[in-house]
Simulated scan of single mutants.
Amino acid sequence: MKTHITLLTGVFVGVGVFIGGCDTSGPTDATSGPTDDLTFTFDFDSGSHGFVAGFADYPPAREEDFDLTSGHGALPAPLALRSGLFISGLNASADLFMFFKGPIDGLQPGRYEATVSLEIATDVSAGCVGVGSPPGEGVTVKGGATEVEPLPALEGSWLRMNIDVGIQANSGKQAVVLGDVANSRRCEESPRWEMKSYEGRSISAPVSVSSDGRAWLLFGTDSGFEGRTGVYFTRVTVSFEPT
């Protein structure tokens, strides 16, 4: 697996965000719709395309301790001319999963192999020491696809995903590890926002699409770092291949 990093300079600036923020357009209102090979691309510079945020692997009774935030807004300077989906949280559970999800419509019923690729903006340096795990290498980026809507479900006193997204650095049946949030800067250097892209990887479990023609796409971060993580998702591509 390879990752691609574009160097950018600047510091973090706040943006107005809201939990579960989205616009009213459906996810299939993408920059490019499905092509003949069933590839969907969503560029979040133009809006959220109906994707909504979710959080799991934490006790909801302590939600205020996690400072969970999400929304769509301008990237930090000097990237203010671009926008993306922002998500942030304080990992007080040592295993916080933060994600966006959206439906993909218009598929024919059948079984598919799904491949997901991503682009993010991150200011997390590589080689840093953190509580539990490093703040860069200890936070994995995941993409997934499934026939059921991905939802946090209460198990005892904790919210857990209703699909298998794996645990931290491990892939699950419905989500695959694409990389981590560390950029090209070393920890001894001053932080700097960079774009980072992840080549497509296939989900291990096939997606079985029913007569409604719908599948679900999700992407997010799975953290072993017991601190705050905040990233922008700027683009996602998912391809479906009949099996």
Rank of each mutant, 00 (worst) to 15 (best):
D164R: 05
E64L: 14
D180R: 03
L217R: 05
H4I: 12
V236P: 06
T6V: 14
V124T: 15
N170W: 01
G156P: 04
G136W: 05
L154V: 11
V124H: 06
D105N: 02
A74N: 13
V141Y: 02
S125I: 01
F40E: 04
G138K: 03
S157G: 07
P59R: 07
P191H: 11
S157T: 14
C22W: 00
S211V: 07
I5N: 13
L107F: 15
F40W: 15
L85V: 12
G20V: 03
L38C: 06
H49K: 08
D95G: 11
T140D: 02
T221F: 00
N91V: 11
Q168T: 09
P60H: 09
L81M: 12
V207L: 03
V176F: 02
D212F: 05
A114T: 13
P191F: 13
F86C: 04
I87T: 08
R82I: 03
S88V: 07
T115I: 07
V116L: 04
L38P: 02
P34Q: 11
G33M: 13
L217S: 08
G132R: 01
G230E: 13
P27R: 02
V148Y: 14
T221L: 06
V116G: 03
P27H: 03
F42W: 13
A80H: 13
S208I: 00
E194C: 15
T6D: 14
D105K: 02
L79D: 12
D37R: 10
I203D: 09
V129L: 05
F18V: 03
S25R: 12
P59H: 06
R82W: 14
K2H: 12
V116N: 03
G227F: 00
E155M: 06
R186E: 12
D212K: 09
F240M: 02
R186F: 09
R160W: 04
G156I: 00
A92I: 01
V177H: 04
S32H: 09
T28M: 11
G106M: 09
S171P: 00
T234H: 04
T221R: 01
A215V: 02
G110P: 10
T122H: 06
G106A: 09
R228H: 08
A30I: 09
A56V: 08
I19D: 09
M98I: 14
Q108C: 06
G224Y: 01
